[in-house]
Amino acid sequence: MSDTILTEHFDGWMQITLNRPDRLNAFNDEMHVALSAALAEAEKPAVRALLLTGAGRGFCAGQDLEGRDPRKMSGPPDLGHTLSTLYNPLVQRLRSLAKPVVCAVNGVAAGAGANIVFSCDIV
């Protein structure tokens, strides 16, 4: 698994930490893939609750726009595609977990990061 997401298992619960503190935990494609894998672990019956937090001084500043810079692409970025294939499924997945999802917000939660917070049961 990528080091952009850290997981820890405890007795009956799991912690997922967004781990790009140098970018205020802003999402890039690698982080989306790693979080999806971590959520697959959290969906297992042995995990009865999930704690989601961020490393460093912020929870999540949203999408890392460096990877969506039109100057580095052959055309404009398709942000609608990013929403429909990455963020909307993530929010739906968090909402549909059959266990409590607690979000420990430790600083900025902006843009898509705020939507992730809003999809949790307890903040």
Rank of each mutant, 00 (worst) to 15 (best):
I5F: 01
L6C: 09
G12V: 04
W13F: 10
T17N: 09
T17W: 09
P21M: 13
D22I: 14
L24V: 12
A26I: 06
M31K: 11
H32W: 13
L39A: 05
E41I: 00
A42C: 06
E43A: 01
E43Q: 02
A46F: 00
R48C: 05
R48N: 12
L52A: 02
G54K: 00
G54W: 01
A55L: 06
G56Y: 05
G56L: 07
R57P: 03
F59G: 00
F59E: 06
C60N: 09
G62P: 07
L65A: 07
L65P: 07
E66C: 09
G67E: 04
R68K: 05
D69L: 08
P70T: 15
R71P: 02
K72N: 07
P76V: 11
H81K: 14
L83Q: 15
Y87S: 03
Y87F: 13
P89V: 10
L90P: 01
L94A: 04
L97D: 00
A98S: 15
A98I: 08
A98V: 10
A104D: 11
G107Y: 06
G107Q: 04
G107A: 05
V108F: 03
V108W: 06
G111A: 15
G111D: 15
G111T: 15
A112W: 11
G113R: 06
N115A: 14
